[in-house]
């Protein structure tokens, strides 16, 4: 049976979208993969990958499933501590410790999954409480396991280049998960749920199960990021691991690029993190103030983010934007 015209159009735009996405991923690989061979500032690239991953995984839950977890840092902190404890206290190799971090993030995500039935700000507040509770739980654990107020030092694992490549792998994993979540049937279901969950249910979409898949992805990657960053810096402490600025930056970077688009968090994180570092270099004392002004201006001028504004201005190209 011949394909009908609109299906043909849909398939064509899907192919173009996929091609554009392939070019974006290839560009990311080309920039980050060989960087340790010649880059003088590896740390800048490491943290850019970190923020792209955080913003991308935040997009899974906020842009695709329509939730706003204000306590997103909880999973980052859990990942950092799981890695540190498994490596330092239990003597497991770093790759195993990182796998444990991912598992810990997903496990906590599954334990709080029933809160996915909450909507809007209520879910956000519960996730914020989760971050505070996790910090408290870790602080109450025996200090010979978690290092107490001094935290954990992983100097024996020091290998910045290996940690850099671990972050690269995590970034690639997040991009692959993003591809799966947005370009598959699952992505169609997620968008349907985000737009109208009851209507999605009416067409037979398993709303709870579909949201859960996005949620699991959204909890696994920050846990891995937290673990890899702990390896990179060789230091873990409660205040840095559960710093709400991690959530704030994930939200701002993802929103600045454009929630709901795969390329949004990449553009948002790389642009704003770049600006952040530039300001830091030239105005170290006014860094946060100037960055705040830049973010306010961006939100006022481009409330849908850079990619969202482009899609709105050139709506005929919207279907080609991954």
């Amino acid at each position: 049976m011949p394909m009908s015209a609109p299906q043909g159009n849909t398939e064509k735009s899907s192919h173009i979208k996929f091609l554009i996405w392939g070019i974006v991923v290839a560009a990311i690989v080309a920039v980050f993969l060989p960087a340790p061979l010649f880059a003088s500032n590896l740390s800048f690239l490491f943290y850019m990958m970190l923020w792209i991953t955080m913003a991308t995984s935040f997009n899974f839950v906020a842009g695709l499933a329509g939730y706003m977890p204000f306590g997103y840092v909880a999973f980052y902190g859990i990942g950092a501590y799981a890695t540190g404890v498994l490596y330092k206290t239990f003597g497991l190799p770093i790759p195993v410790a990182l796998a444990g971090a991912a598992l810990a993030g997903v496990t906590i995500g599954l334990l709080v999954a029933p809160t996915l039935r909450l909507k809007g700000v209520y879910f956000g507040i519960v996730s914020l409480a989760l971050a505070m509770a996790m910090k408290l739980v870790i602080s109450l654990m025996p200090s010979d396991i978690t290092g107490g107020s001094l935290g954990l030092i992983l100097s024996a694992a020091n290998d910045p280049v290996a940690a850099y490549y671990a972050m690269f792998v995590v970034l690639m994993g997040a991009l692959a998960a993003g591809t799966w979540l947005t370009m598959s049937r699952l992505g169609t279901a997620l968008r349907a749920i985000r737009d109208d969950s009851e209507a999605a249910e009416v067409v037979g979409v398993n709303v709870v199960g579909t949201r859960l898949k996005a949620w699991i992805m959204a909890t696994m990657f920050p846990a891995l990021v937290g673990g890899v960053e702990a390896w990179y810096t060789n230091a873990i402490d409660l205040d840095s691991s559960f710093n709400l600025l991690v959530t704030a930056k994930s939200i701002v970077y993802a929103m600045a690029g454009g929630l709901g688009f795969l390329v949004g968090p990449i553009i948002g994180a790389s642009t704003l993190y770049g600006i952040d570092q530039l300001i830091w270099r030239h105005f170290p004392t006014l860094n946060l103030l100037i960055l705040g002004v830049v973010i306010i201006a961006l939100m006022l001028l481009l409330p849908r983010g850079i990619v969202g504004a482009f899609a709105q201005r050139f709506s005929r190209f919207r279907r080609f934007i991954p």
């Binding site: 299906q7 349907a192 737009d195 109208d196 009851e198």
Partner: peptide, 16 residues
């Protein structure tokens, strides 16, 4: 209540 996905085409609504 309206349950057609406003941002999707007729074809994509049927596909869903």
């Amino acid at each position: 209540n309206r349950s057609a996905f406003a941002g999707l085409s007729v074809y994509d609504n049927l596909l869903l």
